[in-house]
């Protein structure tokens, strides 16, 4: 089971991180926690690729406009990277920087949502008598 490997991997990393922080080397601890986050993601990313491919085939079947799935994937990607960045900053006790990253993420996602909102409004107007 992959989840067991991930949990064991993270436990060992946490033990080492606690050792590093105890001795006062917080700089290395922050870098090490970033590396742990990246490695776990890289380990699971191929399953994500399969899910996205399945979603793509699903929308290819129906006549749904590809824009929706494309924007959805972009939003999820931006949300994930913003989350990753803000957690790394929170780990380094930089709450303000983390807040800024999340703020930027929200704005960019809003930017992506605008064309879809316009499409929805357009279709609603067409329904009206």
């Amino acid at each position: 089971m992959e989840i067991l490997q991930v949990v064991i991997f993270c436990f060992s990393a946490v033990i080492i991180l606690r050792l590093l922080r105890q001795e006062g080397y917080t700089g290395y601890a922050v870098l090490l926690s970033t590396v742990v986050g990246i490695l776990v993601f890289l380990y699971v990313v191929n399953h994500l690729r399969a899910v996205v491919a399945a979603l793509g085939d699903l929308t290819a079947g129906t006549n749904v406009n590809f824009l929706f799935l494309d924007t959805l994937l972009k939003v999820v990607g931006i949300a994930y990277i913003a989350e990753f960045g803000s957690q790394v900053c929170k780990d380094a006790n930089e709450e303000m920087v983390a807040g800024k990253i999340e703020f930027a993420g929200k704005i960019l996602i809003l930017l992506l949502a605008v064309p879809i909102i316009l499409l929805v409004l357009e279709s609603i107007v067409n329904f009206l008598p």
């Binding site: 290395y28 870098l31 990246i38 993601f41 990313v45 994500l48 690729r49 994937l73 990607g77």
Partner: peptide, 26 residues
């Protein structure tokens, strides 16, 4: 010391971002 560790971390970050870019076609 910090520079050596940063070199390692930067390689991993670039791989992470290229993976995300290809998956979410960002």
């Amino acid at each position: 010391g910090v520079v050596i560790v940063l070199m390692l971390v930067i390689q991993l970050i670039s791989e992470l971002f290229s993976n995300i870019r290809t998956i979410f076609n960002l």
